[in-house]
Design a protein around this nucleic acid. Structure first.
Length: 356
DNA sequence: AAGTATAACAACCGCCGGGAG
DNA sequence: CCTCCCGGCGGTTGTTATACT
């Protein structure tokens, strides 16, 4: 195309920014706004190219940036969104207020990717590495891993299906642009509506194995998440885990691992401060996440928390009824309840009720 | 204490898409 | 419709800090 480079090599500084340069850039933008990035350096008295100025501002100097360690909730959010969106860091960043895409990308590359790899999960596909299971994981753990991976996959597929459904809704509703722009997280559904992500291959291998054991139990409704006193509820035949169920006082997580089952052994170092948090996306959808306190048992917790992304939205219509993606669910209320009671020792005070 | 390896993060580079002319 | 400019994005590199031997 013959496009000129954004900056001429001669005379323009590269490398780390000095405090003086930061101050110049800050002062200029505060006074004039950034306007054209290409023209900014000269006006601000900086020997930098516009691109460098823009990056410095966006990734470092902007006032609405949160720096420092990522919280566990943020980590979970990144992992979950990466499973859905891949390396679309800007899209992921819209769901992490005050975090930049660059920071998230760096954090993924230096922390999360390695952690998933260690767990035997392919950080690209979020699928279990088939060869990794046998290497350093004992045979007795394979079943647990399989279960976890199956949950992971199932959750991911459901979430993808949900996104597709929401995209369809958004396209049909054709929401005005400014309706979505109020929230930082509003861009995702908007983007999806206009440019759906490339189709991922349906990774059903693990899921099939899992579905041979149990079916129709994945998915979590987010109804009444705001209520601290809500109880376990069912969304049709889907399991619903509202926030107050055992988290903290009742210790859902703790109970989970007190049960002598395949989850046993993951409890170490797990404290009981886990909580759930809802992140609204402003576009009508929503996602719920486990929050805090599952570092030591993060593999299974990531599976569970991943399930949480598959909330059914604010309507009571849920993915269970959505067969458009070939996903069907069977089972019934009692089966699900009994299964989860066997898998997870919910607090005795926990009550179950259907949601309609 | 010195050298080396690794982790963490800031910044750069090249490509792409949208918009203007 | 074509060309060019610009902003944005994601991959990658370079630098610094920290841990380890």
């Amino acid at each position: 195309m013959g496009r000129s480079p954004c900056c001429e090599k001669a005379g323009l500084k590269k490398g780390p920014w000095t405090p003086e340069e930061d101050q110049k850039l800050l002062a200029y933008i505060e006074q004039h706004g950034h306007g054209s990035w290409r023209a900014l350096p000269a006006k601000a008295g900086l020997q930098r190219c516009g691109k460098s100025c823009r990056l410095r501002w966006i990734n470092y100097l902007r006032p609405d940036i949160k720096r420092g360690k990522f919280s566990l909730q943020e980590e979970q959010t990144i992992i979950q969104l990466h499973a859905l969106l891949g390396n679309r860091w800007s899209a992921i960043a819209t769901h992490l207020p005050k975090r930049t895409d660059n920071e998230i990308k760096n954090y993924w590359n230096t922390h999360l990717k390695k952690r998933l790899t260690k767990m035997g999960i392919d950080p690209v596909t979020h699928k279990p590495k088939t060869n990794a299971l046998g290497s350093d994981v004992g045979q007795s753990k394979d079943a647990a891993n399989l279960s976890h991976m199956a949950q992971w996959e199932s959750a991911r597929l459901e979430a993808e299906a949900r996104l597709v459904r929401e995209s369809k809704q958004l396209v049909s509703n054709n929401p005005p642009q400014d309706q979505l722009s109020g929230s930082t997280s509003a861009h995702l559904p908007n983007k999806l509506a206009t440019a759906p992500p490339p189709a991922r291959p349906l990774c059903l291998d693990v899921l099939k194995a899992w579905q041979g054991v149990v079916s129709g139990m994945f998915g979590v409704a987010r109804d009444n998440l705001e209520s601290p006193t809500s109880t376990l509820k069912f969304q049709d035949n889907m399991l619903s885990i509202p926030p107050a169920v055992g988290f903290g006082g009742n210790n859902f997580v703790g109970n989970c691992f007190e049960k002598p089952n395949q989850m046993q052994g993951l409890k170490e170092n797990l404290d009981d401060s886990a909580a759930m948090h809802e992140m609204t996306d402003g576009g009508g959808g929503g996602a719920t996440w486990f929050q805090d306190s599952f570092r030591a048992a993060e593999n299974i917790m990531e599976g569970l928390s991943d399930i949480l992304i598959c909330d059914s939205g604010e309507q009571n219509s849920s993915l269970v009824a959505d067969n458009s993606n070939g996903i069907t669910y069977s089972g019934n209320f009692e089966d699900d309840k009994n299964y989860w009671n066997s898998m997870i020792n919910f607090n005795a005070s926990t009550t179950w009720s259907p949601v309609f």
